[in-house]
Nucleic acid binder design. Structure first.
Lengths: 230, 230
DNA sequence: CGACAATTTGAATCAGATCAAGGCCCGTGG
DNA sequence: CCACGGGCCTTGATCTGATTCAAATTGTCG
């Protein structure tokens, strides 16, 4: 689940297989602001996102929020640990999900195909989180923002006249809590990327990637493709 | 796998079940400095650590190293993504591991018990990595080091005359790359913790936790239990 | 004992956080 | 239709904590 930075390399998403009719699992909708589950709830179900975006968060002891991941269509959310959910999961847009009994994780016999899909999603999630570490540990603010945008572009970007475009469904504060910066720094960095012509941002929400190569290079830590734009 | 900060709450480790005779899997030893696997290798096997310590690392495009986790006895290492290992795994002490065919992940029929164990380990790893995020994202240097020490104490610490003691098997640089700091800052922070009587450190390797509560509070971000010790 | 690697300490620097203010967007109600 | 209000976004100025660069010390192993 989650915005998987490793998944850049592995599109299209293998977890987006048509499981609905195979399992008879119910598909239902979740409104913006509604919670799919909360940290500590007993985890009876897993969910695959069909439409919309979710935000997975955890709280520290002293009230700091960490955004663990964003859940986009195809992602599987709600992997339990010791039978409990270990994060809050809120819809940040009107969404639609498919629910599975968590027991399919243990039980391979009933639905081998489904079991394999869930297992694959779990393993991919581990890999995605390791990618997330790379970002949180040592990268500069530009590198973090560039990595985030680059991953989103690969994940949900749509071609538009030579360029790629996508929507930032989440507020700046969520992005900040995801990549380990403050809202202010995210803003400043976005304007910096705008000023040096790497991206264009319309209406706060819409991102157009003008120079994908530059964005990718910045994500990798290549300095100074952007200098002189403070 | 990995040094699971969440596992603080869940000792003793459920994955440390006796699987050897049940599976007939071969147990073998790995010398210090030897690699169990490398990033990009086809992932044919999983390993459960029996003795010793491993270090899981990944490299960024521009040569920065990130320590993903440390593998202690009981941890399961080598979860694949798309059939490949996604980190390097090096023994940092003489070690002993148990190998399992990776196919046990998919295949529940042959060894349901083993399958469940591996599945549980994978899910626990996801949770552990989420805990790791909390640290890398926003915590101060003291909080990071305190979290690291606290987790190790809970994981491998042994009671010693009112206190808890354990060995830091890894060099400072590894700790730094794990918690997202520099070697120098790790050092400084350790001396800070020493000076204010939270821990004692002998022979560079041996840590004695003198005030576990203070250590835990610092890990949670409680400021100023340590002030005046610069 | 001697050399090399790892650890520790010190001083200077810098990137991002913090604090504060202003601007924009959008819905609500006069 | 326009004025008002509140939330989110953006920008500016300052400050702080971690990094960087450099050097000294300790520990290790042949």
């Amino acid at each position: 689940m989650g915005l998987a930075f490793s998944q850049m390399k592995f599109a299209p998403h293998p977890s987006e297989i048509a499981t609905r009719k195979a399992t008879g699992s119910p598909e239902f909708s979740v409104n913006t602001g509604a919670y799919l589950f909360r940290e500590g709830d007993p985890a009876s179900k897993l969910y695959q996102v069909r439409r919309g975006v979710f935000r997975l968060t955890r709280m520290t002891a002293f009230g700091n929020r960490q955004v663990i991941a964003f859940g986009y269509p195809g992602d599987v959310l709600g992997f339990p640990c010791d039978g409990l959910y270990h994060s809050d999961c809120e819809a940040i847009s009107n969404a639609q999900v498919l629910g599975f009994a968590a027991s399919y994780l243990d039980n391979a016999e009933r639905q081998p195909e489904l079991h394999r899909m869930l297992m694959g999603a779990a393993l991919r999630e581990i890999s995605a989180m390791q990618d997330h570490f790379m970002m949180l540990a040592k990268k500069s603010a530009v590198a973090r923002v560039a990595t985030f945008l680059s991953a989103l572009a690969d994940r949900i970007g749509e071609p538009m006249a030579e360029h790629t475009t996508f929507e930032l469904s989440m507020p700046r504060a969520d992005i900040a809590d995801y990549i380990g910066l403050t809202t202010e720094t995210v803003c400043r960095t976005l304007t910096q990327l705008r000023k040096c012509g790497v991206v264009e941002i319309d209406n706060i929400q819409t991102v157009i990637v003008l120079r994908p190569n530059a964005l990718h290079a910045l994500a990798e830590g290549d300095q100074d493709l952007c200098q002189g734009a403070n």
